Simulated scan of single mutants.
Amino acid sequence: MALDNLISVSFSKHELKELQNHLAGIEALLKGKTVNLTPEQRRQYGRIANQNKLLVDKAKDYMGQHPNWIPRFLDKKEFVRL
């Protein structure tokens, strides 16, 4: 059992064509709604690690408890949507 290849997958030509069609449909739906960031933009925006996520979640809590503390430049609806 330990030597069995459990992830070996093969597709027929018809299945591959179906996959390509579905992927093309997904790409068409996403076109114009997604943005490609440059490497410089990726460095600028960074990412939210688990440690930072706790801070963001705490900020959401405070925004709910004290709406008058929200800075005017922050779009609360967009922030909470994420």
Rank of each mutant, 00 (worst) to 15 (best):
M1K: 10
A2D: 14
L3Y: 10
L3T: 13
D4G: 00
D4V: 10
L6K: 11
I7Y: 15
S8K: 12
S8G: 04
S8W: 06
V9R: 13
V9H: 09
S10W: 03
F11T: 02
F11H: 09
S12A: 04
S12H: 06
K13R: 08
K13H: 08
K13E: 12
K13C: 04
K13S: 13
K13V: 07
H14F: 07
E15N: 04
E15V: 04
E15W: 02
K17V: 01
K17G: 01
K17A: 11
E18Q: 14
E18C: 08
L19F: 14
L19P: 03
L19D: 10
Q20P: 01
N21A: 12
N21S: 11
H22S: 07
H22A: 09
H22G: 00
A24L: 07
A24K: 12
G25M: 06
G25H: 10
G25D: 15
A28P: 01
L29A: 12
L30R: 13
L30H: 09
L30N: 09
K31E: 12
K31H: 14
K31C: 05
K31R: 15
K31Q: 14
K33S: 08
K33W: 08
T34G: 06
N36E: 14
L37I: 06
L37A: 02
L37D: 03
T38V: 07
T38W: 05
P39S: 00
E40W: 03
Q41W: 08
Q41M: 08
R42K: 14
R42W: 01
R42L: 03
R43M: 03
Q44P: 00
Q44I: 03
Q44R: 12
Y45W: 05
I48M: 03
I48C: 03
A49L: 06
A49S: 12
A49C: 01
Q51P: 00
N52T: 06
N52A: 06
K53D: 05
L55Y: 08
V56S: 01
D57V: 02
D57S: 05
K58H: 13
A59Y: 05
K60C: 04
D61H: 12
D61E: 15
D61P: 00
D61W: 11
Y62R: 14
M63G: 04
M63N: 04
M63T: 08
G64M: 10
Q65T: 13
Q65E: 14
P67T: 02
N68G: 01
N68A: 11
W69A: 09
P71S: 01
P71N: 02
P71C: 02
L74M: 13
D75E: 04
K76H: 04
K77E: 06
K77Q: 08
E78D: 07
E78C: 00
V80P: 00
V80M: 15
L82F: 14
L82P: 00
L82R: 12
